[in-house]
Design a binder for these strands. Structure first.
Lengths: 343, 343
DNA sequence: CTGAAAGCGCTAACAA
DNA sequence: TTGTTAGCGCTTTCAG
């Protein structure tokens, strides 16, 4: 506070013109021509006085906040920071800022946050939290908010979204494992209420069949969240069923990390006895023990794409949803190895 | 936009009272008593119409944004997400929101971001980017902004800051190494322009002396940034000097990760030949290869403390800076081992 | 081209 | 206790 700054009025008085003239010059109204002399005077006065347009007044007047709400399920998941960086950078170029919020995978919190963001009059919402059948998303759309989904999609069509090709990615992982001689492959699946969890699960089944491998439901376990803890639980559950298996494809990297834990706790070794693949290629995936074989998706670029999609929505009165699907790529590291003989 | 919502006027008309009455009721003006009947009518009308106070108008009027700028040097460094979460949660309780910005360790970008945040009329600034002699911080203070520094401090006194006890932390690491029989201990130091880099370097020298160990300047190298790449470069540099060494204390975890790379590239093994310690105990530090022995600092709590310090500053007209120093704790994992014999 | 004035939605000082 | 009013700083319509 206290930090009172120069207003249009101040500049106007200094130069000796009407305040509306100052406004017009500073905003470079198209088709408006002042004597270049006056314009220059105004600009220098503004600079000298350190004039900055008051965002509250401006927003009140034009009824736009130039603020985009970004809702993330779990900021501590390293996949998100690069995405966020991409979003921020891109938004900043057009004078928008991102308000970041982290729901910690809690739907109730998610709803509260959404309320807060709406109360703040964000011009748009970038959501990385969407569920497959997400009422919250539907509500936002209905209320006229611009929304773009990132990494996830909802079943209802007509929403902008930036995703990756889960089927392609999982197929790569399964093919890789198959080529290494694995036949009993488990799947630690993500939450089925979330598009990525669901799609990757479907993709797993398809890919197995495509490779001519049987899918054994005893080798599949579902997680309630994309969190390490859940991955450990699910993998332990599979292991407890005592079916032969030599590999597991986890629905994301955090889950894969949980698999590492469970495998170790069971006294088995990765990759010698059990190969593991993840998904996302999150930062540090190459630093784990062992370095994780995973499906790389272009995180930073997804952020950029999301922001651009949002900007596009903001630009037009009747926005066309834009759906971008990026192609992932398997990166082979140390967590996968040839299937042990005799299994 | 379009999303026009009910205003005070709408509510007032609906109830048939003056708009100022509505305002008073909804804001629960202390000492103001309406007939409970009217108050109730107003509240239900507000609810029915979905009244939300317009933040632009409100901010314009009271000249506060209820927004705090949070400036981070590198969002992809996993130490920050927990801090940010702590900040956000705490701020949210008091109706404030955080605007997060990531400078990517670039001072120029930092300055630009600060400009943007100020232009947005943030009520305060939480900075994790401070340099030891930071003009930017001084400027902010001078301009009357409330600022709290997190994780770092500046030389000029009188700024609120939340830090950890670097000397204590480093001493723990050095003592641990010494107790394992290490005598030739290297230090991969952080940027000396940053308080943590500088203090940890000082602490390293002190701690070595306290343990009766000689510090060999050939076993010290400085990094230009707290980034893995720099850690690798610095460690490679030390290794290239071919002095005997059996351990290295890195000024933070990212640097330690870089040390891993350099050690491996040099064909040495960690921890069998060279022990490594980090600092921060960032998420996933326990998952690395090998699991990193490091100094744990309470990240989430630091975020909470920072936000509370900020809230305290915001509360009073003439704020007393608050300086909190949290106590870190060594956590021993797999990257440190007994010193090899014969060195 | 430039000035005047209204008004975005709100709070607070003042009157009644 | 309640109503009236000014005004936060800005954009924009309407006159001039």
């Amino acid at each position: 506070m206290a930090r009172g700054r120069a207003t249009l009025k101040d500049v106007a008085e200094r130069v000796g013109v009407h305040l509306s003239t100052v406004s017009r010059v500073l905003n470079a109204k198209p088709g408006y021509v002042v004597s270049e002399e006056v314009a220059e005077k105004i600009r220098t006065a503004a600079r000298e006085l350190g004039y900055k347009t008051n965002p509250f007044a401006y927003s009140l007047r034009v009824n736009r906040s130039f603020t985009i709400g970004v809702l993330i399920p779990d900021l501590t998941n390293p996949v998100f920071p690069p995405i966020i960086r991409g979003i921020e950078r891109t938004l900043a170029k057009k004078g928008y800022i991102a308000i970041l919020a982290d729901s910690d995978n809690d739907p109730a919190e998610e709803e509260r946050i959404l309320e807060r963001l709406k109360a703040r009059q964000t011009d748009g919402l970038i959501l990385a939290t969407a569920h497959r059948a997400d009422e919250l998303v539907a509500d936002c759309l209905e209320e006229g908010y611009r929304v773009v989904l990132i990494n996830r999609s909802v079943e209802a069509a007509g929403v902008s979204s930036i995703t990756n090709d889960d089927h392609f990615g999982i197929a790569q992982a399964v093919r890789h494992l198959a080529s290494l001689g694995h036949r009993q492959i488990a799947h630690v699946a993500g939450p089925q209420a979330i598009s990525t969890g669901y799609q990757r699960y479907l993709a797993f089944r398809e890919a197995m069949q495509a490779e001519g491998l049987a899918v054994d439901d005893n080798l599949i376990a579902f997680c309630d969240a994309f969190a390490e803890k859940e991955g450990r639980r699910a993998m332990a559950q599979i292991l407890a069923r005592s079916r032969p298996l030599s590999a597991v494809v986890a629905a994301n990297d955090l889950l894969a990390l949980g698999c590492y834990d469970a495998i170790e706790a069971a006294g088995r070794r990765c990759p010698e006895e059990i190969s593991v693949t993840g998904y996302n290629d999150m930062p540090f995936a190459d630093k784990f023990k062992p370095p994780l074989t995973t499906v790389h998706i272009p995180l930073f670029e997804m952020g950029i794409e999301a922001a651009e999609a949002m900007l596009a929505l903001l630009d037009t009165e009747n926005p066309e949803p834009r759906q971008v699907r990026l192609r992932p790529e398997l990166v082979v590291r140390g967590s996968t190895a040839r299937a042990p003989a005799g299994i």
